[in-house]
Amino acid sequence: MTAPRAPAIAFRIARAPFAACSLFLLAGLILLTGGPPAFAQTAAKAWTPPPPDADLKAALDKAATGSPEALAALADGGRADAQAYAGLLFVVGRGKIPADPPRGCAYAAKAADQRPDAMHLRARCLQYGLTGSAPDLKGAEAAYGRAIQMGYAKSKCGLGQMLMADTATVGRGVALCKEAARAGDGDAQLVVGSAYLTGAVVARDPAEARKWYEMAAKQNPLMAARKLGQLYASGEGGKQDTKKALELWGQAEQAGDQAVCILVADQLFSDITGGRKPGPGAYAFKGGIPMADIEVVELWYQAALERDPRPEVKTRAEYALKVLQSFKTANVSVTKKKTK
């Protein structure tokens, strides 16, 4: 029996590195949804950084190309706005600029009383010991609290995540993140969704996780669309809808999620093999699948091979590409028989 035909979905395969954008465009990337070093939050809704003047913008543009000297000079000259950006740059690192957390944290400390984004970064520095000293949770809590008072909305769930790590304060932490999530913080929505999906700090509830991921994916497809797509693909917590899963994974890939390529590839592979994923054994493939559909699946496995650093993903992609090549050979054989 011939396997179901694969949908010829023309997802974009982004092979080139993402274009370097001005650091000014990263103004809100302070900070951190999980633990170090994955710094990746957007600007608070209650506070947004003022636009930089010409000198700062020029320094930020140079930093985005790998030359932080002008930005550091402005920061060393006492400008709080430059100190905030320099703090982020050196804590995270960017391209040719290596991370130097103690230096970045020092800049954040200088600007913290004037800029809530810098105060938030200072809280992260204290929480994770990025200053070069041991973690200071009490100091971090105080800094988060001050950033919240200054209008930095991200600090509410930032503090919540820190509190969730302690069994004595987990309830308070969850409540803070839910409060931020209900107010529209996309990263907080992601945190709450993940909490319900994993069941680590609250009772596991995939349906509740799906609800929060749905909200988060509208604001942050890079972080939420992959997980929401997995729930749609499995049917966990609601209806199963592989078409919707593929759409969500496509959004995540376009946003820069390198780990989503293997999910798309495996799903499309399953569509042409009667539900099988790559692995030992026989496949329900007897030819008749349009060559273009097989090539779409190959492109996604090739993207996973090139872009996903996980060894197990590379092994599976290599295996799948060999299987797909055998499918193409079988297709050619079937076509020749039909034309005789």
Rank of each mutant, 00 (worst) to 15 (best):
K45P: 04
A142I: 04
Q127H: 10
D55W: 01
L23N: 14
A134V: 06
C177R: 02
G199V: 02
L190M: 06
A8M: 08
D271G: 03
G193E: 02
K314L: 01
P98Q: 06
A20F: 07
A111R: 06
I272F: 14
A224G: 01
A134P: 00
Q189V: 06
P311D: 07
V264N: 09
G28K: 00
F285C: 05
G129Q: 01
A188G: 03
A118K: 01
S22C: 11
D241L: 05
G275R: 04
K314F: 02
E214T: 15
V170D: 00
A143S: 15
G78N: 01
R316S: 12
A233S: 09
A86M: 05
G95R: 04
D166M: 02
F327M: 13
A63E: 06
G288D: 12
L89A: 10
L299D: 15
F39M: 03
P116L: 10
D308G: 06
L126M: 13
A10K: 12
P102E: 02
R115I: 15
A10Y: 05
S333K: 09
Q302K: 11
M1V: 15
A143W: 02
A108N: 04
A224E: 02
K338Y: 13
Y85L: 13
Q41L: 13
G95C: 12
I97Y: 05
L126K: 08
G87W: 07
L32G: 14
L159W: 07
R94E: 07
G173D: 00
I13S: 11
D113F: 10
A147W: 03
I30Y: 10
L126R: 07
Q325N: 14
C261I: 01
Q258F: 03
K96Y: 03
A259N: 05
L321H: 07
V201Q: 06
T329I: 13
L231D: 12
P102T: 08
P290H: 13
T198V: 00
A265N: 07
F39S: 07
C105F: 04
A245G: 10
D205R: 02
E208M: 14
P311N: 05
K96E: 14
C125H: 07
L305D: 05
Q114V: 15
A259P: 00
E236G: 04
A183I: 00
A14D: 09
E298L: 04
P49W: 12
Y85P: 00
A259F: 13
R103F: 10
K277C: 00
A19I: 10
D271P: 03
L88T: 13
L268D: 09
A80G: 02
D257H: 06
D76V: 05
A203S: 08
T339N: 01
D113N: 15
P51Y: 11
K314P: 00
G287Q: 05
R12T: 03
G274A: 06
D117Q: 14
F90E: 04
L228W: 05
A40S: 10
A112P: 03
P116G: 15
A304Q: 01
D308I: 09
D187G: 13
A54G: 02
K218W: 00
V323A: 10
L25W: 08
A75D: 04
A304I: 06
C105Q: 05
M162R: 03
G237E: 09
D185C: 14
R103K: 15
A142C: 03
L126Q: 11
T169P: 00
Q251W: 09
T329R: 02
